[in-house]
Amino acid sequence: MRKRLIAGITIKDNLVVQSISYNKYLPLGKVEYFIKNLNRWSVDEILIRDIDAYRKKGEPNIKLIEKIKKISCETPIIYGGGISNFKLASLLFNYGIDRILIENLFYENPNQYEIILNKIGAQSIILSLSIKNGEIINYINKHIIKNIFTLLKDNLNPSEILVNDITNDGSYGKFNDKNLICVNKLKPKIICHGGLTNIKTLKKILNNKNVSAVCISNYLNFKEHQYQTIKNNLNLNTLRREIYE
């Protein structure tokens, strides 16, 4: 079973942005170009997070997804943002999205989360947990979630959990190790995201048996062939080798 290096892109106002702690955004360019490039680089998976839909409680940006659909992308795509019911989730799959990322719905409408899980299958569902200094928080109302083990009963387990370090998002190599402690007894495998740039830290996290993948976003945009360079520098047998076009 190979671990994955996921390429993440954050979308705000229909553009890919560099996000810094989710309160400062620098525009980077059109989504289509990013998807085309990441597909050309043969990244393991692409994670698209639409923070407009996420924060404004809107629906997924179908116009944008239609544009993505037209790109012949042979790389698996995960989409997160505004998925509030089965109908929307189903629509995304028909548009060629392979897996979906859910956060707010899990807290606000657990019944609908369960319906999606049962109809789509756990393999296509990733639960995103916002974590601040080792504590899970509901990003919308800022409440600390102390009962994740009660909320996440066995029958509600997704395939993976995205541990999103919201404090260190966009930072240089500051992913907080404590974030893994609060989820390490959960059954699904973990994807880590937020401030992951340092090769030593990436290696340490990828060697954790509960971690199945890491997601890198801003750091990919600093240099040409950055994705391949990171994989090459990691030099881990557990990862698929980097591919140059």
């Binding site: 659909k69 012949s72 042979e74 799959f93 028909n94 392979d98």
Partner: peptide, 14 residues
């Protein structure tokens, strides 16, 4: 119903 038609269509068109 829900299936990844889009991706399959794209690759066979390619």
């Amino acid at each position: 119903g829900s299936a990844n038609y889009g991706s399959i269509i794209n690759i066979f068109r390619k």
